[in-house]
């Protein structure tokens, strides 16, 4: 059977989130097993720009655009039913494994009466996948039965961003759902600033408890701004109150896969390593030569971060 894959686009109303193009890579891996087509569903209001970006992702066949006022906030109770309705006739439905994808996809799967796969990290066949369990400490093979729609989220850290240069056909698709009156969106307080997003940044600079204070994190912000990097932190630094929660990298925070990860004063607890083990290159700077992070670092330097960070900044400028 030829695969017919629908991907739920993630966007902020103006820009397509890179997780979507990563899901396209996952879908492309599925089409290597029996061929098929990849369509993208964009839900929102005033989203022609997003649709155009989705159509430009290489390998995309069609972009279905459902433009409706009640779909403007990314609420699962509105987007879930819309995704379930759009899924008719498809063999696979995918979403990025972001907080948005994880919120909406299982909702839609339940409406379709099917089970869902979280965090697809490898494709072994059109219905055979690998996914991590126990925070990535085990990888399990999972096969979906033939007669049901495959619903899954694609693990962003496992898939490259699909190239541009596609020419998907943009088609309007009328909304089938009504606004769920029981849920009211009140807004998003952005973690924001001008720094890149932790999940999608090419370079991430990260600090641990050794930073010692919120003020001392300034040296990492300065280095990051010079590199165009995002800033992360270990759980210890978050628990100590040096930085806000949304900067936490690790099993219980964000799982990231930047090209370059620079860890300063991070010892390398298992729960932190779980969050970075798909990074391209890991650099560790720590005073303690026995810190476990050196076991997995590609480049290690035993030294005082308060000396090394300004030196890096100076030598790169």
């Amino acid at each position: 059977m030829t695969n017919k894959i629908l991907i739920l686009a993630e966007h902020d109303g103006a820009t397509l989130n890179p997780g979507t193009a990563k899901a396209v890579s996952c879908a492309a891996a599925i089409t290597e097993h029996g061929g098929g087509t990849i369509d993208i569903l964009v839900l929102g209001e005033g989203i022609d720009g997003v649709a155009a970006q989705a159509a430009a992702v290489a390998g995309v066949n069609a972009v279905l655009v459902t433009d409706a006022a009640h779909l403007a906030p990314p609420l699962a109770v509105n987007h879930g039913p819309e995704l379930a309705a759009a899924a008719e006739g498809y063999s696979h439905v995918l979403a990025p494994s972001s907080t948005y994808g994880k919120d909406v996809l299982p909702h839609a799967a339940a409406l379709l009466g099917v089970n869902a796969l979280s965090d697809i990290m490898a494709v072994e066949g059109a219905r055979a996948f690998k996914r991590p369990i126990y925070a990535g400490n085990a990888i399990v093979d999972v096969t979906v039965p033939d007669d049901v729609i495959v619903c899954g989220t694609s693990r962003s850290a496992s898939w490259p961003t699909a190239a541009e240069g596609g020419a998907g056909a943009v088609q309007a698709r009328a909304a089938t759902s009504q606004r769920a009156a029981h849920t009211r969106y009140q807004g998003l307080a952005g973690a924001g600033g001008d720094r890149p997003d932790l999940q999608t940044a090419r370079i991430v600079v990260s600090g641990g408890r050794a930073l010692g204070s919120a003020e001392n994190f300034e040296i990492l912000y300065r280095l990051a701004d010079g590199l165009g990097a995002a800033v992360g932190a270990s759980r210890a630094a978050v628990d100590a109150g040096y930085v806000p929660n949304d900067m936490q990298v690790g099993q219980t925070g964000k799982i990231i896969s930047p090209e370059l990860y620079l860890a300063f004063g991070i010892s390398g607890a298992i729960q932190h390593i779980t969050g970075i083990k798909d990074a391209g290159t890991i650099v560790a700077v720590n005073k303690d030569a026995d810190a476990p992070i050196f076991e997995i670092a590609d480049i290690g330097l035993v030294g005082d971060l308060f000396t090394v960070v300004p030196e890096i900044e100076q030598q790169l400028s």
Partner: peptide
């Protein structure tokens, strides 16, 4: 208040 990738989202639900 929900912890989402972009920050903190607030919903009011019945």
């Amino acid at each position: 208040t929900r912890e989402v990738d972009g920050g903190l989202e607030t919903l009011e639900v019945d």
